Amino acid sequence: MLPTEQRVGAVVTVMNEQETIGGVLAELQRLPLTELIVVINGSRDASYDIVRSQTDATIVHTHAPLGHDVGRALGAKLARADVVLFLDGDIPVKAEELVPFALTAAQGSDIVLNDISPYVGRFEDRDAVTMVKEFVNRVMGRGDLGINSLTAVPHAMRSEAIARIGHPHLAVPPKAQVLAMLHGLVIRAAASVDVIAGNRTRAMNTGQHNPVAELIVGDHLEALHEALTAQGKRMAFPDPYRRRVMTMA
């Protein structure tokens, strides 16, 4: 049970997840959700058949791969719940672990992130993706968020936050997070789910400078560009002492 009267829904993105999607859905069905939206994109396996036979979910089915982030943006566009949980079809998360995300959002937090800090080790062992996540949070004045980002599932968002950010911006999660900060939305990392150990190893996300890592780093650079455009080239970091005009004399 969820101790809230607000409507809670979930968006799940799926691409060739026939081995795991059943477990993801089984845990979601243990929650009193008012809606379930499953975005199946580019799947060549039995993912669609499993979702259709196991649930009465609203299914968005595209033959071309969209990417998980675009899938979440489409799901967010369709969602009507007050609070929306976002998950991927390859990592089953226990219903008990999802409750804090939904409840924290229902209690007023606009965005609730997965706190993966306990699972990444010491700074010198971190990769470029982890470092750039923390860098963006720090330059936005949210060092308290550490490495936590909308790139990691599960996370939750209030419907008002989705509307304020604009669902198309969810296609680039770090950009959406920066926009949320610029709008003054309440962002918290309220619970920890170890999705690092459970992340499926694929050719695209393995090895140094792999395509997924490069994509995520690029997403954070795009987020920084958004912040620089909104706040100026020094953002929130003042330069009150240099009289640079004197060098032009």
Rank of each mutant, 00 (worst) to 15 (best):
T201Y: 07
A176T: 06
V195A: 08
T206P: 03
P168F: 09
A161K: 02
I165H: 09
I187F: 11
T206D: 05
D219I: 00
R188A: 15
I216V: 14
A176F: 12
N199C: 06
G184H: 08
P211C: 11
A161H: 01
H167Q: 13
A163D: 14
N199W: 05
L182E: 05
V153A: 08
S159N: 15
M181I: 15
I196H: 15
I196P: 10
S149G: 06
H183E: 14
R164F: 01
M157G: 12
G218F: 00
H155K: 02
I162E: 07
N199S: 10
N199A: 09
V186Q: 13
G198A: 14
A190R: 13
R164A: 15
G184C: 06
H169P: 03
H220F: 03
H169Q: 13
S159I: 15
H169I: 04
H167P: 04
V195G: 08
N199F: 05
M157H: 12
A161W: 04
A191T: 05
L215R: 12
H155A: 03
T201K: 13
I216K: 12
I196L: 15
A191D: 08
G166R: 14
A156N: 07
P168S: 08
R202H: 07
M204F: 03
A223K: 05
G184Y: 10
T206G: 01
L221V: 13
A176L: 12
S149E: 13
R200T: 13
P173D: 14
A171M: 10
N199R: 11
A161F: 06
M157C: 10
I162W: 02
A189Q: 02
G166W: 11
A191K: 07
V212R: 07
V217F: 01
V212W: 05
A191V: 09
L215D: 07
A190C: 12
R200F: 10
N210D: 12
A180Q: 10
R200Q: 14
A163V: 12
I162K: 03
V217A: 00
L215M: 10
V212C: 03
G207D: 06
E160P: 03
T201M: 11
V178T: 14
V178N: 08
P154R: 01
P174Q: 03
A197E: 04
R188S: 15
G207Q: 06
E222W: 00
L185W: 10
M181R: 14
V186H: 14
G184R: 04
A191I: 04
